[in-house]
Design a protein around this nucleic acid. Structure first.
Lengths: 242, 242
DNA sequence: TTGACATACTGACGTCGTGTCAGTAGGCTG
DNA sequence: CAGCCTACTGACACGACGTCAGTATGTCAA
């Protein structure tokens, strides 16, 4: 009905086994697409199973064959976004190159992911408090970021690059900051300005961790080509003409 | 039934006018108390009008005489917390005394308010995305903080105390950080450690705004007696034995 | 081709929470 | 005590959810 793009039901039936109308894979994909499309245009509070399935070839009860409820669907979407986002944050997390430039590259990557999938992240963040299981998933998601950042901070503290504060708590705070800013800036249309957000977040991280403002550093060395960031869309983007 | 403390229905009927059972004031107060009590023990997602009114002497439909829905109730609670919180943030906001010490005092005040009313703040933050009106109220609440902080930053930028970055965006980011951290730390029981949170937030604000870590400053001058902070409870605290 | 099985799928139902309204009861006024 | 006013409630309709028995559709065996 309103499928806008991409894979027109390959129907490969990889193992030639049972499958009458949809592959489980395909059905979940179609439902996910509908959800993503919806969330680019509306808030999570307006997403009902009715509305969601109206955007697919299936009817409402079919939804419950693939997801136990809307929250589990959101959990699935979160997982997809996370895998994309993690990859883009590697430079600083992995300690590649000069720290302040690597930090800027990582923040840029995370920002790019937010530009591509902001509404999904926003929806997950909004839905999380409504369901214990999704809340745990969101908490775990943030926890993995906290662990990674905390590890990096501690490593650089030992190297004398970062002052001696409570690394765990600082990591939590900085990640919470990122999440709040990114969701506010890119969680709904019209989205904010990625470059301005990058400057702000970079200034904060650098100011806190390295005790200086980034502008004191050679810009030429800090600037990174953001177009190299992975911007593979999670799913079909919402049709703006809808 | 379970009212634990304070004003036992003064029944002053200030103007001796109409009032059969409750003053409007008293009824709204009783309902608010029940909500606050509930939110100290449970998440907003578990708060229903049924549950809420079971904690009062009234029945469910009576709720709708005093509030249009749960979201309006939350908006009312937010207003009460805001007035308390604003007062405690005065030192740095108003530019009283040495900036870094004033900042610590203001952060301390905000933290104290969060300790006293964290669950209410958490509930409002969680409920905001579910209702357009409450979302606007929350947004306005954060906006007033942003305005105040932004003004202060710009003033100190002109005085050469703070580097030249986008003040508005930075204020938004720092306030979003505070909100996220405070709600995470004090929004549910068991609450976090106020002193550790103060250290962390202070380190971030100082690192970002004044380009240094607070420990470089004389501690004796920074330390402030937190017991002077206004800790008047918003309402009856939840009974821990419940 | 046909029968028979497996399963993707759906119409219809029961449940729960919401918001409303007509009607009642409790207190005030003259 | 008559009358009124309004705080208050029982009962209803609505909407969304989650489920289940039953149907439709595709696959395999003979």
């Amino acid at each position: 009905m309103s499928v806008t793009l991409g894979f027109p039901e390959p129907k490969t039936q990889r193992e030639s086994t049972r499958s009458s109308r949809h592959t489980v894979e395909a059905a979940r994909g179609e439902i996910s697409d509908s959800a993503v499309r919806f969330l680019w245009e509306h808030a999570f509070r307006d997403l009902t199973v009715n509305e969601l399935m109206a955007g697919t070839t299936l009817s409402r009860p079919a939804f419950y064959q693939y997801f136990s409820d809307l929250h589990e669907l959101m959990e699935s979407l979160l997982g997809q976004v996370e895998s994309v986002m993690r990859a883009t944050a590697n430079p600083w997390i992995m300690g590649e190159g000069e720290p302040i430039a690597a930090l800027r590259a990582s923040l840029g990557g995370v920002i790019q992911t937010s530009v591509d999938h902001g509404p999904v992240l926003r929806a997950v963040a909004e839905a999380a408090p409504l369901d214990a299981r999704l809340e745990a998933a969101w908490s775990a998601f943030m926890g993995r970021w906290n662990d990674a950042v905390c590890t990096r901070i501690e490593a650089q503290q030992q190297a004398g690059l970062i002052p001696e504060f409570d690394a765990r708590r600082m990591a939590n705070a900085l990640n919470a900051l990122d999440a709040a800013v990114l969701i506010a800036e890119f969680g709904r249309q019209p989205q904010g300005d990625p470059d301005a957000v990058l400057d702000t977040l970079h200034a904060i991280w650098v100011g806190v961790l390295y005790g200086s403002v980034p502008k004191r550093l050679p810009v030429s060395e800090v600037a990174q080509d953001m177009s190299t960031a992975d911007s593979t869309p999670l799913s079909t983007r919402g049709d703006p003409t809808r």
